[in-house]
């Protein structure tokens, strides 16, 4: 058990190192703005005084290493700076919107994982049959689908034409359905492809033959095969979570979903770089955390995996 804790600590440390790297990237990002960063952030109409004020409050007049350490220090105090657009603390802007993004990401993942696994299992157990061909088509179509287009199509069909769900917003429970499906389709496709490939392998393993030799229903054998296929499936779930977050930016825009993805697009359009920095950092942190969680789940799924 202490070994497990040591492992978690080690994973957390590498996660933190990665995030420190991300901080360096977002600090450099502002430095890299063409021309005078303070001018860009303050806006074209800003008076020289306003520009100077932005430069000073963001510490842009100091060497970049100092800015980096200052950003880290502020981060430790939960301070992500002040939004150039609204004047609010970036942390509170993100704080009010993050739950929506988390909700969407979780629902999208759940949709993708459940349907992806189901589709992959169906394809593997019906290999070479029409079910398999259809599942493969759905798989390759899913990874080729532009989420923004899919989102609009779903809106047109289900919200405008059939009027089954609201067009946009996050007001009611049913308004969750279309965005979650839109966001989850890519995950579904990736997970189904991985599930099929791994299940084709595990279904023919000796231990599954042993299960069949016991005289059980085929679905019991499939369950054994699936349990053993879970490690690679978990791995893709973790890896595609990054893509899912990218998709969330677009999905939120399409559905006017009040999460941090939409905030990111708005902040970029208004050159609100303190907000952009904070949001990008938040997305990276979400990715790192999810991948630590999937790593930890390995040992739950497979007793042979020693994490330490």
């Amino acid at each position: 058990m202490s070994g497990l804790i040591a492992y978690i600590v080690r994973r957390l440390v590498t996660g933190v190192i990665t995030l420190v790297g991300v901080v360096a990237v977002v600090v450099l990002m502002v430095q890299a703005l063409p021309g005078d960063p303070a001018r860009v952030i303050a806006g074209i109409q800003a008076t020289p005084q306003q520009v100077a004020k932005v430069r000073h409050t963001m510490g842009l007049d100091e060497p970049v290493t100092v800015q980096f350490w200052r950003y880290l220090e502020n981060l430790l105090h939960g301070n992500l700076g002040i939004s150039a657009r609204t004047g609010d603390p970036v942390s509170s802007l993100i704080g009010t919107r993050l739950p929506y993004t988390v909700e969407l990401a979780i629902l999208g993942t759940v949709f993708g994982v459940i349907f992806g696994i189901a589709l992959g299992v169906l394809a593997a157990t019906h290999k070479g049959k029409i079910t398999d061909a259809l599942a493969s088509m759905v798989g390759v179509a899913g990874v080729s689908m532009p989420v923004y287009w899919l989102g609009i199509l779903l809106i047109v069909v289900f919200a405008v034409d059939l009027k089954l769900v609201p067009v946009s917003g996050a007001a009611t429970l049913s308004s969750l359905i279309l965005p979650s499906v839109t966001l989850g389709v890519f995950s579904m496709a990736v997970v189904s492809r991985m599930t099929r490939a791994t299940m084709l392998d595990t279904l023919d393993q000796d231990y599954v033959r042993t299960v069949r030799a016991k005289g059980v229903a085929e679905r019991v054998a499939v369950r054994h095969a699936l349990r053993n296929a879970f490690i690679p499936i978990l791995t893709v779930i973790g890896l595609q979570f990054g893509t899912l977050l990218g998709g969330a930016v677009l999905t939120e825009t399409v559905f006017s979903w009040p999460g941090i993805g939409q905030l990111l697009v708005a902040s970029i359009s208004s050159r609100d770089f303190p907000a952009v920095q904070g949001i990008v950092l938040t997305f990276a942190a979400m990715f790192v955390i999810v991948n630590i969680i999937t790593d930890l789940l390995y040992s739950v799924v497979d007793p042979r995996v020693r994490l330490y």
Binding site: Y207, T210, V211, A213, D302
Partner: peptide, 13 residues
Amino acid sequence: LIPQDPMTCLDPV
């Protein structure tokens, strides 16, 4: 059936 290879014939998980 008592299979050929006991190493691979039990479900590892």
